[in-house]
Design a protein around this nucleic acid. Structure first.
Length: 263
DNA sequence: ACCTAAACCTGGGCGC
DNA sequence: TGCGCCCAGGTTTAGG
């Protein structure tokens, strides 16, 4: 479920609890989220490791460990990292000082693994980074063909944008999600570039969108769902022009747009 | 390179 | 109450 703003929110909320603590163990309720090695080996390998810091790359959380390895966590559709457990608890990271970090996942699409070094995740640029300039966006956009929304959600093109923020960025830019990216004008690309940054930043400010199930590390909902213009608003009047928001399917995902504002 | 569909899972909501 | 169907913030894989 979580896209860049939701993962960023979680990172900011857990870093104080986990940074500079040692992982003393892992307790499983259901070990299926552990990948690349057996849960037993994972537990043995990670025990005694000190967490030097936590960073976010796209929708991944990277725990930098003292040995140089990284604990990598992707939350999938329904994964949560919590400071208090909930009913979908799958495993508990035991930390020095009696602290605990809980991983919960209703749908079991989340992935947790240990990487020998910085993981090679095959991702496009970070949309909120310095390096992601308009020229960079234009350069990668000009190499692509196809429906603009699907390309925005392609993690190797641009990292961290998912179904909600792709729809919202396109509304903000006034571009229909099914437009072909190769047919966008320079002015449209520019609007889209600024819209992507804008909606992601707003999502972070509001601690994420809780349309369905997202909760942060404290178990609280974000508030950005109250600011969404199209996502999950099928049939409701556009905030800008009152035209009913339309829902279509693209790439097997619900796609929302305003037929009045988006051309 | 692009496009589509299915698969991986569980549970909530809705219609009947 | 219950059953069956559709839906869900993501990614991977296999095919055309």
């Amino acid at each position: 479920m979580p896209e860049l703003p939701e993962v960023e929110t979680i990172k900011r909320e857990i870093i104080g609890t986990v940074k500079n603590r040692t992982l003393v163990g892992v307790e499983y309720k259901d070990p299926r989220n552990i990948k690349e090695m057996s849960p037993q080996i994972f537990k043995e390998e990670i025990s005694g490791e000190k967490i030097l810091g936590v960073e976010r790359r796209a929708k991944y959380l990277l725990f930098k460990l003292k040995s140089g390895r990284y604990l990598v966590i992707h939350l999938g559709m329904a994964g949560r990292l919590l400071l208090k457990p909930d009913k979908y608890l799958r495993l508990t990271f035991k930390l020095s000082g009696g602290k605990e970090l809980y991983f919960s996942d209703l749908r079991m699409f989340g992935k947790i693994w240990l990487c020998p070094g910085y993981p090679d995740l095959k991702l496009g640029p970070e949309p909120l980074s310095r390096e992601f300039t308009f020229n960079k966006f234009k350069e990668i956009a000009l190499r692509k063909k196809g429906a603009v929304k699907l390309i925005l959600m392609d993690q190797s093109f641009l990292a961290g944008v998912g179904n909600i923020y792709a729809s919202e960025a396109l509304f903000s830019a006034g571009i229909r999600p099914d437009r072909r990216i190769e047919k966008l004008s320079e002015a449209e690309l520019k609007k889209l570039y600024f819209s992507i940054k804008k909606v992601l930043k707003a999502g972070i400010v509001h601690k994420g969108s809780s349309v369905d199930n997202f909760i942060d590390a404290f178990g609280k909902q974000g508030t950005h769902q109250n600011y969404l213009n199209v996502y999950d608003r099928k049939g409701k009047p556009c905030h800008r022009c009152k035209t009913p928001i339309q829902k279509i399917s693209m790439g097997q995902r619900g796609t929302y747009f305003c037929p009045g504002c988006q051309l």
